[in-house]
Amino acid sequence: MTVSGREARAGWLFLLPWVIGFLAFTAGPMLFSLWLSLTHYDMLKPPAFVGLENYREALADERVGTAMWNTVFFTALHVPSQIVLALGLASLLRRAGRGSGFFRTILYLPVMTPPVALAAMFLLLLNGQHGAVNGFLGWFGFQGPNWTTDPAWIKPGLVVMGLWTVGSTAVLYLAALTRVPVERYEAARLDGASPWRQFWHVTLPGISGTVYFTVVVNTIASLQVFTEAYAMFFGARAKQSAEGDAALFYVIHLFQEAFGSLRMGYASALAWGLFAVIAVITAVQVRLSRRYVHYEGDRS
């Protein structure tokens, strides 16, 4: 056996636990759910093959349309607001000097709040009648909306709540900002570039790889939004959100079909539908990244 062959074998042996885990806990369940999506299965009787019936039903299901619209709308609000705020905070942190470590910790702490506790807290903070957020707005003469009960404001309210965990993205941006060479700013300043032009032509290209990564990851996470919305609007006993369908996100609908109606086959079809949507959106993002994302040492 050659040296490289032995190394390859050792490499695979080291990888074996992960490979086994991947096959048993990711690839296996995915393939099983693909099979289930072609069946009727209520967990108590064996699956019965029905071909593409579940997919046809999903296309005709009015709640799927509502849930998908809610999810895409939320994503379109949530991802840009996360990125803009995280970038702003990271820029401030970079200027924090010796206090940077302290502020970085403070900024990251909320990320560790359990999502259900977060949802319970924001139900109080965002209460339209006596919540702290509207109390704060009231100081400036604004009468805040009913964030948690008015269908028009539920998704913006959830976006506001989502900003609580902006620290994880901000920390990534801070790391990226520190890697942008100082000489480029010096050169830009010598050329008379304003702070805005420096940001646009030096900072943004310099951190575009990180921005791209966070856009992709946050988009996928937003399209799978579930825990906070479920805890806030559906709860343990509620069969249905009391705010109509405004908080019915795609994964919540999927969950209700699976564990409320015991339609594992249909829910599996819904899951593969979401997988397809995420795959298409991610593919578009990858394609766009070739034009807008720059990496150090990239000659293209």
Binding site: L123, G128, N146, D150, E243
Partner: peptide, 10 residues
């Protein structure tokens, strides 16, 4: 409903 329920939630 929005105001009614927000008030009731308190």
């Amino acid at each position: 409903w929005a105001s009614f329920k927000a008030f009731r939630d308190t």
